[in-house]
Amino acid sequence: MTSDHRIGPIALPDSRARRVLESLLEGSGITLNGDAPWDPQIYNPDFCNRLLRQGSLGLGESYMDGWWECEHLDELARRLVQHGLGGHARPPSDRLMYRLQAGLMNLQSKARAYMVGEAHYDLGNDLFERMLDPTMCYSCGYWKEADSLHEAQLAKLELACRKLELQPGMRVLDIGCGWGSFAQYATLHHGVSVTGITISREQAALARQRCSGLPVEIQLEDYRDIEGCFDRIVSIGMFEHVGHRNYRAYFETIARVLADDGLFLLHTIGSNNSNITVDPWIDRYIFPNGVLPSARQVADASEDLLLMEDWQNFGPDYDTTLMAWLMNFEHFWSELAERYSERTHRMFRYYLSVCAGAFRARDLQLWQVVFSRDRVYRYDAPR
């Protein structure tokens, strides 16, 4: 069911669901049908009931259905998170069911590894080409000295290359290579050869095209099947799909294929705690089976396999990156509207905005972690 926005927001019925919701929002600065740019404007009388029944899933789906609008979704999300309402993302029965499922099943097994590629990354290269910058980096940029999204993504790629101490002739493995952004950059600017792996057919096809003529090999492959020996390994924005049951196997794979004097750089979104949970709307519509690691989980999984040499957090930069993607997406939507539905339009607007808000609230982090075997590592490049 959708709603007609031409009639404007409705007067919400006086119901138990409305009173409970308003009580939860008390002190957050958020008012239903309020005047602030982050206040949701409600167009369907069942909004409050749906939100209390379904939590985050109901909030996101009702936005996709046109049940409510908000001028600044990112600020709404920030206030919800900082007010501590993240714990209401799932109704209690759903939280219990997910914990049981995650405890009994490997939700990120090899058999399920390609699900996120099919659901999200294969959605359409034309969409991502318009949303992202020319590097086609689909991960956090580094904004310390950048004035644009493109500068921030180039700075991120160079930061990773310098931390890895790349030298001409080195053989590099890129786990989760996306559309070939790191492979293209590292070969052109540092003279290395790169083997990139991805679980997305659309990414693999475009990455091969973008890296044509360069010493780059792109493979459609799961990380658990990697063979060979590499001087350097990089993984940018892929670890979020590995899952807690597979963290140890992931680092065992790194240790197995990394040269004795090699370095490994892990670039990942991180969680502030080790709870095994996911946002149900993100899980259903954006990144199926994704889960964010905690610092403790990264440390435990790599213990006795690799030495942790350096850990940098630039999580606030993801807020800026996501808002830049949102600006691109909205600017070029007219070129995409014939192929993609308005529901997809609202899905991406909601996804980019609420994620930006979560990073702004410091509920999510962005880590770059450098590992070695047993070499002396003295990274001193400026950050």
Score class of each variant (00 low, 15 high):
273 N>R: 10
116 V>N: 05
36 A>V: 06
59 L>P: 10
206 L>Q: 08
139 S>A: 04
273 N>A: 07
113 A>T: 08
286 I>S: 02
126 D>T: 12
279 D>P: 13
118 E>S: 10
336 L>M: 02
371 F>C: 04
103 G>R: 06
23 S>F: 13
249 A>P: 10
247 Y>A: 05
134 P>F: 05
308 M>E: 15
348 F>H: 15
14 D>H: 09
117 G>K: 08
234 V>S: 08
254 I>T: 08
359 F>N: 06
78 R>K: 14
113 A>D: 13
114 Y>L: 00
262 G>F: 09
298 V>W: 13
364 L>W: 03
361 A>C: 05
265 L>R: 07
276 I>S: 01
259 A>I: 01
54 Q>C: 10
137 C>P: 06
167 Q>K: 11
381 A>L: 06
61 E>Q: 15
216 V>S: 04
290 G>Y: 06
302 S>T: 15
122 D>C: 05
225 D>Y: 02
227 E>P: 00
96 L>V: 15
319 D>L: 02
100 L>P: 13
16 R>Y: 11
176 G>F: 13
143 W>P: 00
311 W>E: 11
98 Y>R: 08
242 V>T: 12
151 E>F: 01
229 C>G: 00
220 L>Y: 12
143 W>M: 00
50 R>Y: 14
243 G>I: 12
96 L>Q: 11
89 A>K: 11
249 A>T: 09
16 R>K: 14
235 S>L: 01
152 A>I: 09
227 E>V: 04
31 T>N: 11
238 M>I: 10
185 Y>T: 01
204 A>E: 15
245 R>E: 14
116 V>P: 02
135 T>W: 10
366 L>T: 03
246 N>M: 09
